[in-house]
Every structure is written in C-alpha cells, then in structure tokens.
Amino acid sequence: MAKTYFIGDIQGCADQLQSLLSKIEQTEPHAHYLFAGDLVNRGPKSLASLRLIRDLQIAGRAESVLGNHDLHLLAVAQSIRKAHRSDTLDDILQAPDREELTQWLRHRPLAIFQDQHLLVHAGIFPQWSAKKTMKLAHEVEAQLRGDNWVDLLQHMYGNTPVQWQDDLQGYDRSRCIINALTRMRFCTADGIMDFDSKDGLGNAPKGFAPWFDLPHASAKVCTVFGHWSTLGLILRENLISLDTGCVWGGKLTAVALNDREVVQVDCPQQQKPG
C-alpha cells in the first residue's frame, strides 16, 4: 500500500518540491501526495510547480486544497485583482497553457478528509466539525466550478463578516467560509477572526488565540494545515502544521499520514518577510 504524504506550502519553489519528491520516492516510489495549498507565488517557478502538481493529480497520485495565493492567481488571471509587487505569477499568466492550468486550479477542493485527517490551507472555526467543514467547503467548491465562478471571485475579497453564523447567506457566507479556510490564524472562542497578525503562538492579539488552541468541534480528527510559516512544524495527536517557510529560506516539509514520518529539504531564501 503506497504511503500518503501531506506537503506544506510550496509557493512556486519547484526545484525544492522536485527534490522533496525525489527524496520520498527513494523509498516510496508510488507515494501519494496531499498538498496544503499555496502552490504558487513568491517563489521563482510558479509555472513549473503548478504543472508538476497538475500532472501528479491527473495521474491519480496527488490532490491539493486551494490556498489564498492560488485564489489570488485566479483573480489576477481574470483581471479582478492587480498583481502585487511581490507576486511571481507572470510565468503562468504568459504561458500557452494558462487557461488549462487556471481551469484545473479552480476545480481543486477547499478541504480534504481522508483517514480521520482533515486538510485545509489555513484554519477552521471552533464551531465546525469535520463533517460541517467538508459540507461548507463543498458549497464554495460548487460555486468555483460553476458557470458564475468569476462572480464569486469578484465578491471574495474583504474581511467581513468576521464571525461565522449559520444563517449567513449569499456572498457574505461564501466569503466567510473562504476566509476561514484560506486566511485564518487567530480567532476568539466564539469565532471572530483576526486578519492583521501573522506572528507566532506567543503574540496573539488581545482576546484572541491560535484557532487550533481553542475548544473545537473537530477535535476527534487530526487537522492538517499550512499557511502560517511563523509556526513551523507542529506535530500533535490531533494537529499537523506544515508550513516551514520554504519561500523564506526555511524548509519544505512532508509528513506521512499513517506514521508521521517527516521528510524535509532545505530551501534558499526567495523573499524577505515584510
């Protein structure tokens, strides 16, 4: 039985991804991969990263959730957002297979549940069970895969509503789900998100806590996520934090689903924080 590995934020560091896969496949030649999103942007080879992961997915060997940088790429490609100064998306935007790649990307899930592990890019509200997270993720996935997907991207940006309510409707509901799954770091016990702080565990804004340190309806499963590079690798019984700052000169990390084997490669610094 081939092993499955979770892999943290790549952000266009294709050479390091290839090195990591080669390292894994020395002993697990038929490994399966679940990527935590942010496949592109800020690193030097976003196009190569996207093509590699797309090819693995088509071959039945990989899947990836969407991260905030992946959604940003879709918005830039549709001229909904302007590129940021630190973006490294031009190779994708100018590629002959740009349309094929972006269409493939918008069909990726926002959450994956496998063998009692729940994979998201960023976080989940304390009130969300794994079952509810998957249901809400499917709501937004259906919109991204539907005929009006560009309308969703046009209404996706913004920090409100900051708190989940079951009776949210329309784009407010979709935006709140997207913000939790792709942007959340700190929140309150009653589910109010903070979008300002990117610091580590010791620097929570007053009244806030890391989302995963709050009592959670999903506590019986292991939640796996990336997005938060200042945390580094965290391995707990019901939590795996995967983003070890590849693009910032840290490491690219894979963790095996079944036995928590950790495989890492060192990464050159591509961006400076701030």
Rank of each mutant, 00 (worst) to 15 (best):
G158R: 08
P126F: 02
W164E: 02
N159P: 07
T182V: 14
R145N: 08
A180Y: 03
C176I: 15
A130I: 00
D172K: 15
I124A: 09
Y157P: 15
H117M: 05
I124G: 05
M134S: 01
V150E: 06
Q116D: 02
F186Y: 14
Q116S: 12
K131M: 01
Q165F: 08
I124P: 02
K132D: 01
H138N: 01
Q165G: 12
L152E: 01
R145E: 00
F113R: 10
I124E: 00
G123F: 01
N179T: 10
Q154Y: 07
G170S: 10
C176S: 14
T160V: 11
D167R: 14
P161T: 07
W128S: 04
G158S: 12
Q116Y: 02
F186L: 14
A142Q: 07
W128K: 03
C176D: 06
A137S: 04
W128M: 07
R173N: 07
Q163L: 15
L119F: 03
A137T: 01
R175P: 06
Q154T: 06
M156W: 05
L118E: 00
F125L: 11
F186N: 06
S129T: 00
R173D: 02
E139V: 15
Y171H: 12
E139C: 14
Q143V: 12
H138D: 00
W164Q: 07
D172M: 15
T160P: 08
D166F: 13
S174W: 07
F186M: 10
E139R: 15
G146M: 03
K132M: 03
N159W: 00
D151H: 08
K131Y: 00
P161Y: 02
D166K: 12
S129W: 00
D147W: 02
D115H: 12
I177R: 11
T160I: 10
K135D: 00
T182I: 11
L118P: 03
D166P: 13
V140N: 06
Y171Q: 09
W164N: 07
H117S: 10
Q169G: 15
H155V: 05
D167C: 15
Q143K: 11
Y171R: 13
V150G: 13
N179H: 11
T160H: 14
P126S: 05
T133M: 07
Y171D: 05
L153V: 09
Y171N: 09
Q116R: 12
M184Q: 09
Y157A: 11
D166Q: 13
T160M: 15
G170L: 15
L144R: 02
G123K: 04
R173L: 13
L153I: 06
G170H: 11
L153T: 04
D172Q: 14
D167I: 07
H121E: 01
Q169I: 13
